[in-house]
Write a protein that binds this DNA or RNA. Structure first.
Ligand SMILES: [Mn+2]
Ligand SMILES: [Mn+2]
Ligand SMILES: [Mn+2]
Ligand SMILES: [Mn+2]
Lengths: 219, 219
DNA sequence: GAAATTATTTAAGTTTGTCTAAATAATAAT
DNA sequence: ATTATTATTTAGACAAACTTAAATAATTTC
């Protein structure tokens, strides 16, 4: 099946929003893709026609098995390019998403398998997200929670769930990256902010919003 | 100026066909881009509007200075990606053109300058073509002629002017690559075929058509 | 130099992916 | 259980990049 760039972007966005089982809503998809609900409805009809999604009027969208396969391929390409940009071209993690958003649409299984080999077949991308293999399988992520829900005291950063350069730049400024070990000093009930300490750094207080987007597991 | 993929492809094709000074013809451009003359006329109006070409009805097309600058950027991206594919991902020279045709449209000066650094700032691509630098300047190619017009006896292959995988596969089969040294054994007037010998290889006779597309300089 | 051929342009229509505005369905509030 | 609000779909339009068919210009040929 030969998909356009727009179709691939829709499929990937549906995959991203579909976490678990719940159907993806027209408005949510429009917001994610920075387009209008009317456009989403149009595209939904087309993708249903191509059997990539199941869609009934007013019932939201879910990926079909084919759609899921397609999504995983696009995600694979995206994350491998991100690895390339960070590992080989020394980009920092907040710069790569945008570029990978374009590179992911160069469709060549040979290119991607060679790129993967060249990178040493990485299994997680610069943001801690797992990279599907050529068959769409990916390492089950080790159990992790967002920092605001962690109950252990000493933690290690495993991923970031928001990949806006705004968040990533903030984390850079605070020297927090994948693998960073940190310790929870205090929870402040008033605004759910959290005081944390990274070794050799002064303790800092981060907002709930930031904490929700830092994934961690107990050390 | 933000150009679409189609516009970039047109500009690059015009650059390619414009060798020297003569204006590019509607039909030639349509043929090069595998589209129809009517489409070319449409696009010509648009590119003229954007001041990338000069174009008058029935008079053909030439790049404006801006257009030339744009073309050189696209060519730079194309050739750097080709280097990447061959040098880093072990593609062979006949496989890379198609992929570079897509990769070249990812527009990021930062990406390209880092890619260039990563590759050691190469100045010729896998087909022997010069790579423009960030300012559009490229090494003046050393004097070279096509094999059918060479007058010296002992020659070295410097480039191939047709980059179809058909020609490149033929050259692979005959162990001819950039830098290959060869000797002209005979010219056959009947069909302008040429007998050549590569060291450690049996002599072979190549058609005029092949000879026209192999660029050489005297050893 | 008129006729034939070839090249180019125009006109009209298609596909893809958008958009706005209006209509309708679903959900929440009172 | 109406009413108000929000979500979604439909209708109609638009821009980009194509196409085919017809019209016109330029070039060759005799
Ligand atoms: Mn994308
Ligand atoms: Mn990522
Ligand atoms: Mn291209
Ligand atoms: Mn090349």
């Amino acid at each position: 099946m030969n998909l356009s760039v727009a179709e691939e972007n829709y499929i990937k966005a549906i995959y991203k929003l579909q976490e678990g089982e719940q159907a993806v809503t027209t408005n949510a998809l429009a917001y994610e893709l920075e387009t209008k609900p009317a456009s989403v409805t149009d595209m939904a009809k087309k993708l249903k026609e191509k059997k990539l999604i199941s869609y009934e009027k007013y019932q939201g969208i879910t990926l079909s098995p084919e759609g899921r396969k397609t999504a995983l391929q696009v995600v694979r390409r995206h994350r491998l390019w991100e690895c390339f940009l960070v590992d080989k071209l020394s980009f920092s993690w907040e710069e790569v998403h945008e570029l990978a958003e374009e590179l992911e649409h160069v469709r060549s299984e040979k290119l991607i398998s060679r790129l993967s080999d060249f990178l040493g077949n990485p299994v997680i991308d610069p943001h801690g997200d797992p990279i599907p293999d050529a068959n769409g399988r990916m390492a089950k992520p080790r159990p992790q929670t967002s920092l605001d829900q962690a109950n252990a005291r000493r933690l290690v950063v495993t991923a970031v769930s928001d990949q806006s350069s705004a968040l990533l730049a903030f984390l850079n400024a605070k020297s927090i990256k994948l693998g960073t070990q940190l310790e929870i000093i205090a929870h402040y009930e008033f605004d759910n902010s959290i005081e944390i300490k990274v070794k050799h750094q002064p303790a800092i207080t981060i907002s709930e919003q930031v904490a929700k987007n830092i994934m961690v597991r107990p050390l």
